[in-house]
Nucleic acid binder design. Structure first.
Lengths: 208, 208
DNA sequence: AGATGTGAATGGGTTCACAGCA
DNA sequence: TGCTGTGAACCCATTCACATCT
């Protein structure tokens, strides 16, 4: 595997999302500048990113949408199906369940967790819910790959402690807390909505 | 104002969030490496970022938490209070209302919008809701600064079109769509939870 | 001694510019 | 002609290394 930057991977996923939609609409080919415009990125950047996936377009006709899509998928999608758990069934957790693509080929939510009695041992939005006490055993026994943390700030580090001693591979952390993990095998991605909002406020006020 | 990078601003906001909590806990001083650890960043990076805000610590005692906090606030917080609207009162919108700091000095949600009859003309989580038809006039008449978009994919571009012709300064876009705006005065920050999840899946599988 | 602030070096990411192709 | 793929140049971000301070 060639080395590739975190940012390129992110953009490839964005391209893939756009291409999926184009494909549905029956689009057959497109040029780098078209994809660039849709993603608000320079055409050179798009071509540079595409070099990594090893699919080549034609100067005359650009890229074949279907083939390009397949090539990017081959590059970014994990080989095996990934088992995902979601922890924290509040509004944010439910929002993610809403957005989660049901027919995703590669990512599957296998269980959801909370500590509130009225939310556990039920089926919520089609997913089976359990108490957090069951989290550790569940992750270990089912070889869960990824966890999405959507619990409030005060509970986040406790969850991290539980997950720290499992074979988990990655965490997507939406809680407003920087998790401290000693297990450096676990990749952690953090998304803090309030930090993003403050960032927006800063740049909106004197952009440039 | 010295030029500063987008990433530095983001980190400064993270520092500020951490320092606020330390201050509440009564912490009085700290060293760069401590802040670095909490933010999972190198100490040099922290010091470099702090150069931009113009607050200087002492080699013997590090930084005074309260003063540093105030300096960062002076640097990143907008001068005026910013009026914010939220568009889309689904689970995601409600999640943001949950997380929104009520006593924020600088950011204030002044109204929320949706197109569903049972969600409008009410008070939801303490915020007044209106139909999207009212959005444009509201933004213009109240000189709204920022908009948070949490509507589904199919409605997002329509909202962007409405906001495009206002004096709005920034948009935080949570919808899974790259908004096309002709008004380049508007700063747009995009957060796509599903792209973040796929990114996590990629790096979790062969991290490094 | 053990921090800080910062010039200099390094490393990565993006854009430029152009050869090559249909 | 008008695109693609890509070396080279440029630019920005991070880290190193060290003079400086208490």
């Amino acid at each position: 595997m060639n080395k590739i930057s975190e940012k390129s991977v992110y953009r490839l996923i964005v391209y893939k999302t756009l291409l999926d939609k184009l494909m549905e609409e029956g689009r057959e080919k497109l040029f780098s500048y078209e994809l660039a415009k849709m993603a608000s990125i320079s055409p050179e950047q798009v071509r540079r990113d595409l070099m990594a996936v090893g699919y080549f377009g034609s100067p005359a006709h650009g890229y074949n949408v279907k083939e390009l899509c397949a090539s990017i998928a081959a590059f970014i999608d994990p080989e095996q199906r990934q088992k995902v758990v979601l922890i924290g069934i509040g509004n944010l957790g439910k929002a993610i369940l809403d957005h989660f693509p049901r027919q995703s080929r590669k990512l599957e939510i296998v269980a959801i967790f909370d500590n509130s009695p009225e939310k556990i041992n039920r089926v919520i939005q089609g997913y089976r819910s359990y108490h957090i006490d069951k989290l550790k055993d569940f992750v270990v026994e089912n070889a869960v790959d990824l966890a999405i943390i959507t619990v409030p700030a005060n509970a986040a580090q406790q969850i991290a402690g539980i997950l720290n001693n499992t074979n988990l591979k990655g965490i997507l952390n939406f809680s407003p807390v920087q998790l401290q993990l000693s297990n450096s095998k676990i990749f952690v991605e953090r998304v803090d909505m309030m930090v993003s909002l403050q960032k927006t406020a800063y740049w909106a006020n004197f952009n440039r």
